[in-house]
Design a protein around this nucleic acid. Structure first.
Lengths: 269, 269
DNA sequence: GCAATAGTGTCTATCAGACAATATAGC
DNA sequence: GCTATATTGTCTGATAGACACTATTGC
C-alpha cells in the first residue's frame, strides 16, 4: 500500500494526519478501473451443466450473451453486489453463492479498464427451470445455455455455451474463461465439500445424487462405492419416504444434513 | 453488464454505435472504487509459516504492518501488478504466484472504497532469508513475520503475525483475514498440487519435504506412507547425491520433476 | 411373470499406518 | 563400537471396485 506512482497522489506517503488526509481526498481525480461482478448461475440438468445468460443490448459484443452482472456499488460488499445482481437479473435469492476468481486483463473490455470479480451460484434444476423462462427486472432477454466441456487430457480452459437446440452462442468478454474456471472449481470441490447437494432439491434419491456428481465430474462414478461413501459420510438423512410411480422398485428419498462429529461417528455403526 | 444505475451512465443501454460510445466515455466522471493488489509472500522456516510485511508510513494503520501491495496500473493485468509490486517491495521475481481471493468490504479502508485482489507467492527458506534482510526499492521498512495459526476444531479465520521474537504485530486492514485464507488455500492444495516443492530449494531430502508438508498442514505426516507416496508419485527425481556432514547416515537428495503419464507408470516398477 | 432399478453381501486389490530390521554417516 | 537417521520389507486394517444376489415396484 506504499505507492509513489504519480497517478495516485491522494494515497501517498507524506500525509501527517489522518483527518487532514481524508479531507483532501478526491476520489474522481485520477484514473481508476471499473469493477463489476459477474455471476455464473449453474444447474445440472439431463446430464449436463447449464447456466443463465443475458443478451447484451449495447457494444461491445452487442447481441452477444453474457453472464448476469453489473457494477459494484460503492456502498456494498462484493458478496452483496453478487446477491443483488442475481436477484435483479435472475429473480433468485438465498442460493449457494461463492466468489470464484477476479479477471482483470487490461483489454478484456474495449471501453475502459474493467476488472470483474466472478462468482458462481448453484441452484437445483426445478428452480432453474423457473428462472430460465422468467423475465429480468430490466426486461433483458435471457437464455439457459448448456456448457460444452471438451477438455482433452489436460483439464482446464474456456468452455463454450450452447443454446437448448445445441447451437453455439457468442459469449461476451472473457465469459467463456469464467465458465471454464467454474467447472474446474466445481470439480475440485465436489469430493471435499457438499456442493453436490446445492444442485438438488431438498429430497432426492441416491441415484439422482450420483447423477449430479457424474455431471459435475464429467465421468462415471462407481455405483457401489458411491452409495457406500454417501451413506457413511454422515451428510445424508433418510426420510423413510420413497419415490412414487417410477415403474420399478422405488428408491428411498434422502435429505442433506450436516451432522456433528459425534453423530458422524455413531452413524458408522 | 446491463446496468441502469444513474451513477454509471457512461456504460448504459442506449448507445447505438460502438465508436460513438467510446468517444463519449469519460472515465473520471463517476464514482469508482480503487483496486489494489496485495501479495502474501510465504515461506516455511523452522516448522512455521512466515510472511514478509511492510511498515506503513501513513494513515490509516500508520506504523502498522501490511502485506506488500499497491495500486493496479490501468495498463497492466492483475498478475502483472502482483509481479511488479513483489519485485519492487521484495526484490524477487519468478516465484510461484497465484491469485487468492478478492476482498471488498466497503469499510475495509477508511479513506475510500478500496477493493484488493490478494495473491500469494511461495519461496524457499534460503531465498526468503535474503529477502527479509534486504531493502525495498522505496526504502520502506520490512520484516519477516511468523504466522500463528490457532484454529480450533473448525479451521479458518484470521491469522496473527508475530515478529521473530514472538511479539504480535498490528496488521493493517483485513490482512489477517488474507493470511488466514492463504493458509487455508495452501492446506487445500497441498495434497493435490506440487506447491510443497515451491517452498524448498532445488535439491532436498525426503525429510525436508515432509517437514514442509507438516508445516503447511499443521499436523504430523506419517513418515512411512509419506515416503512411499512421494516416491511413487512420479514427482521426484533422485539425484544420486547425498547429504554432507550430518552426523548420521546421509539422506539422498531429490529434485522436483513433473513426469509425463508414461514415465509415472513406468516409475512404479 | 417380466422389466427395471434399488439395495445387500462378499471378495479382492490397493493403500495408509505400524513396526521390525538393516544401512551408513560422524564421532 | 555408539548414536542418529535413512532406507527397506512386512504385516494389518480401511476402503474402492467388481460382482453376485435379493427386493420391490409398474405393467
Amino acid at each position: 500500500m506504499n505507492h509513489r506512482d504519480p497517478k495516485h497522489p491522494q494515497i501517498g506517503q507524506d500525509d501527517q494526519d489522518e483527518t487532514s488526509f481524508l479531507r483532501h481526498y478526491d476520489p474522481g481525480a485520477f484514473e481508476r478501473p471499473s469493477v463489476t461482478v459477474d455471476t455464473a448461475l449453474i444447474s445440472a440438468v439431463d446430464g449436463a451443466l447449464w447456466t443463465l445468460l443475458v443478451r447484451r443490448r449495447q457494444h461491445p459484443y452487442r447481441d452477444g450473451w453474457a453472464l448476469p452482472g453489473g457494477f459494484v456499488d460503492v456502498t456494498e460488499s462484493l458478496d452483496e453486489a453478487a446477491e443483488r445482481l442475481l436477484a435483479n437479473k435472475a429473480g433468485v435469492q438465498g442460493l449457494f453463492l461463492e466468489q470464484l476468481y477476479t479477471f482483470g486483463r487490461p483489454d478484456r473490455d474495449p471501453r475502459t479498464r474493467v476488472i470483474t470479480v466472478a462468482y458462481y451460484a448453484l441452484v437445483d434444476r426445478i428452480r432453474f427451470a423457473g428462472i430460465g423462462t422468467g423475465d429480468s427486472d430490466d426486461e433483458s432477454e435471457r437464455m439457459v445455455a448448456r456448457l460444452q466441456v471438451d477438455w482433452k487430457g489436460e483439464a482446464g480452459g474456456a468452455v463454450a455455451a450452447l443454446d437448448p437446440e445445441g447451437n453455439p452462442l457468442e459469449l461476451a468478454f472473457d465469459h467463456a474463461d469464467i465458465l471454464g474456471m467454474v467447472v474446474l472449481r466445481l470439480r475440485g470441490k465436489l469430493d471435499y465439500t457438499p456442493i453436490g447437494f446445492e444442485l438438488l432439491p431438498r429430497q432426492f434419491t441416491l441415484h439422482q445424487l450420483r447423477s449430479v456428481y457424474e455431471t459435475v465430474a464429467g465421468r462415471p462414478q462407481n455405483k457401489d462405492s458411491f452409495r457406500r461413501r454417501m451413506l457413511t459420510s454422515g451428510l445424508l438423512r433418510a426420510t423413510g419416504i420413497r419415490q412414487q410411480d417410477v415403474g420399478h422398485r422405488p428408491a428411498e428419498l434422502y435429505e442433506f444434513q450436516q451432522l456433528s462429529e459425534d453423530e458422524v461417528s455413531s452413524a458408522n455403526d
